[in-house]
Design a protein around this nucleic acid. Structure first.
Lengths: 210, 210
DNA sequence: TTTTGTGAAGTTTTTCACAGCG
DNA sequence: CGCTGTGAAAAACTTCACAAAA
């Protein structure tokens, strides 16, 4: 079964919301209520949730615990991914400390930077190598995922070096630049520059209208 | 004329790419070449670019400087937006230092936090207030945009407080949590948690197939 | 009665394919 | 000839509307 990206994106949001609800001791929730909280239409919520089988109770709604476990199952990781972080600057450090990175689904296994202050040392319990050694270290340690938080100028060369390794399978980039990535590597981007510009553009549009 | 969000998102990427090309002294580029660099089909690039009038030369391509100026014009800000940042932790500091935030389109005008070490002090040249005063300070200083980088637990209460101000028009949230925002406020989200989970999900899917 | 699950309809976005122009 | 601009076709995604179940 193939699932669309927007659906997965929403499932992840449902899951986070349901986890909160579970903590608050809530037992039951309807598609309408989920939708209101996330700014999504109820029909969309139902379509997403029914994609993986009937899980709700008609006339009642969804059982929070059951639905939560159900989505957890869909999103479950078959293993603990080995992850490296390139760029141990402000952003890199912030990411390591970020709530999203406290996941049991992966373990941070290596850091990469060019700063001699950092290379060769342990930072937050993880060893830091020089970026030039990235392909070698990634292969040695069987790392599959790279988080990219290097400055814009360094983005492409860092990807090129990392892409020479055999074990690398995915990259999540926070680098505010355009980079070309080989097709065999799954590539997602969190583009702060784009999001910021987008906000300003639509603010402008809105002001025009009013 | 109304423009679709995906189109604007791509225009921003074209603009960044063209800026690079301009620096490298490149004069001319085709839709196919732009597309290859960004992983977008050439026909999509042409459609996006022709949205705002004919700008390319048939048989030749697009003149880099001209196209760049053209897009700059579309994305141009009518004014310098006044921006505040809530949450001066790792992520907040990283954002302030981030390349994307070195834009002439806005000025950072206020910081908000709850940490007594920070409240009442200047950080990177900007004064920090207590989050409880956010609505008051936003109105006093006519701030229109809020960057949200507080921890997940604080996200909703921070938005609720800020939404009481009259001048606030848009929020860009980096908070890894679900928040409800009044309709009149334009809301964009960079959800690191969601992107990370998405990457892991599609990595899993890919492994299944191979 | 309430709320799900889901085909069908609608909307948006992408891709095709080719005319049109330098 | 080569590459843009663009209607028309296709695909993707969302919303509607209602039957079916608790």
């Amino acid at each position: 079964m193939k699932v669309a990206e927007p659906t997965i994106e929403r499932l992840i949001q449902y899951y986070r919301l349901l986890t909160q609800m579970k903590e608050e001791g809530r037992k039951v929730v309807s598609s309408l209520q989920i939708g209101e909280m996330l700014g999504i239409k109820a029909s969309q919520v139902r379509k997403d949730l029914s994609y993986f089988g009937e899980i709700g109770k008609r006339g009642v709604g969804y059982h929070v615990n059951r639905l939560c476990a159900h989505i957890e199952n869909i999103l479950a990781s078959p293993k603990v991914w080995r992850v490296a972080l390139a760029g141990v600057g402000n952003l890199g450090m912030a990411l390591m400390a970020h709530a999203a990175f406290q996941s049991y689904k992966f373990e941070a296994d290596a850091l990469f930077d060019v700063d001699p202050e950092k290379v060769g040392h342990e930072i937050m319990g993880v060893h830091c190598w020089h970026i030039d050694d990235i392909a070698k270290v990634i292969d040695e340690r069987n790392i599959e995922v790279l988080i990219l938080a290097v400055p814009a100028e360094a983005g492409q060369s860092c990807v090129d070096k990392a892409a020479q390794s055999k074990s690398l399978k995915g990259i999540l980039s926070f680098t505010p630049a355009t980079v070309v990535v080989p097709e065999r590597i799954l590539f997602f981007r969190v583009d702060i520059f784009v999001e910021l510009e987008k906000l300003l553009f639509f603010l402008k549009e809105q002001e025009k209208i009013r």
